[in-house]
Design a binder for these strands. Structure first.
Lengths: 124, 124
DNA sequence: CTTGACCTTGACGTCGACGTCAAGGATACG
DNA sequence: CGTATCCTTGACGTCGACGTCAAGGTCAAG
């Protein structure tokens, strides 16, 4: 599929898809005319990229761990020791981030719960 | 307390504390000489700011909701309807972010689990 | 009084994941 | 054949929470 269709499928901009390729996260095939031709595995890769980016990982880290991702039913390549240490650190960072997010959500809920019942008074 | 001590206490840079004030999140007292003089409530406010910033809220939103935060034992001011809508949206966004983070963590755990047991082979 | 730690207000720099033009080639359709 | 839509590669802009200088005032200790 071409970049427009993939963009619509995964909800990423075409710019983002080209950026991922530029950062070495993706290597789509090319047509004779130079147009990108994405496979369905590329699509799955993009979804993983989105998840990892949303988790705060940088593109360089993602580039290293993508060849190690579990690929439908089988773990492909285990990573080297140094990378695994990085991943553990990222995992811990994510756990901490989840805890912080939960605290922020509870704070917001407390404020929302304290809001006026229905007909709210005017506000600046 | 002065900015240096507060900085050390809450783990924020002095630059960050001045920035919070500049954005209207904080209004510390001043000494005759113009030095900032933070109260202990300012310290609690900074901790809330840190939590909300970590949750992805912008300083402008935080500025609006800070006067509404539950202040030791009592909810102070409920927010106006429009703000409450924003807060609900932020809360939902945080929930979604937590879900994404959990997925990323599981992905990382799968990769880590697939790593070589102990003596790892060399790696690029 | 002087030194040095601490404080003040600017103001420009940073970083990363894109957004957004510009200036064209490729493809599909009637 | 035209043309409308998609695609290509640059390359500069953005945005937000600060980092990082610069050029000084303030204050306690010796």
């Amino acid at each position: 599929m071409r970049i427009g269709e993939l963009s619509a499928r995964v909800g990423a901009s075409e710019r983002a898809l080209r950026y991922y390729e530029q950062q070495g996260l993706l290597r789509p095939a090319r047509t004779d005319a130079g147009h990108r031709d994405y496979s369905e595995e590329d699509e799955r890769t993009v979804r993983r990229i989105q998840t990892l980016l949303a988790a705060g990982l940088g593109t360089s880290v993602i580039a290293e761990l993508l060849p190690c991702t579990p690929d439908e039913g089988g773990i492909v390549a285990p990573a080297c020791a140094e990378l695994v240490d990085d991943l553990r650190a990222e995992r811990d960072r994510i756990d901490a981030a989840i805890a912080e997010l939960a605290r922020a959500r509870d704070l917001l809920d407390a404020i929302i719960a304290a809001a006026p019942p229905a007909g709210a008074p005017a506000c600046a």
